[in-house]
Design a protein around this nucleic acid. Structure first.
Lengths: 109, 109
DNA sequence: AAAACATATTGACTTTTTTGAATCTATTGC
DNA sequence: GCAATAGATTCAAAAAAGTCAATATGTTTT
């Protein structure tokens, strides 16, 4: 089916949201918001070493929020709308009404 | 104004998303999805110690994703739709078109 | 083929996060 | 008041994450 939403395990969701819980990664996402950029460009706009950037790019790609494209000796990175959508779907599910919900009060005095 | 969206710093956004990058916290959110629960109920449905639960509840509350309500000797916790909305708005901004976007290609060969 | 360049990986170190035993605070019930 | 209960805090240890120098890999250029 087409608009089907997949449910990820807690472990998988934690990996997705790892993308957003480090300041440097948020800065990288900020830079990628302007469009696809290669690692060397990201590096010169940040104040971290090249191995550190590479490390964060790996986490961002593993989370699915960023995708990379190799072109010659360059790696171009961009935000993945599909990855972001998965994170959004999780958040939507958090506040959606749950049909299996028992509303019994907890620890009433 | 009413529908105004606030822009948080990277540091603040990182704190918000900390809520979602730990498996135990995701399990807590799963439990709170069924509705407000007190800490003692959460504790008996999880496999962690009481201080550890208290630690995670603090992080969840600091992130704004969960709010607590004290009633006698009990603490009742629930998911905050306003907090979740803030996280959602950040994600929406990630993929929204940027008017100040320069689309100049990066490292073309 | 050698030099230069872009990026990834390894290894060591530092910092942060997670964890639970022990303890403290606050509330309830006797 | 005293005992019991719920939850937070303190402290120390263990685990995980972030950092960068050095090095490795792969690509382009000369």
């Amino acid at each position: 089916m087409c608009g089907e939403k997949m449910t990820l395990s807690n472990k998988e969701n934690a990996r997705v949201f790892k993308a957003f819980c480090d300041e440097n990664r948020l800065q990288i996402l900020e830079l990628l918001h302007g469009g696809e950029k290669c690692a060397c460009r990201l590096l010169e706009e940040m104040s971290i070493s090249q191995p550190t950037l590479s490390h964060h790019m790996k986490i961002l790609c593993d989370s699915g929020i960023v995708v990379g494209r190799k072109e010659g000796k360059w790696m171009h990175y961009r935000i993945s709308p599909e990855g972001v959508r998965i994170a959004q779907d999780y958040l939507t599910g958090l506040t959606a009404a749950d049909p299996t919900c028992e509303s019994e009060p907890c620890c009433e005095s």
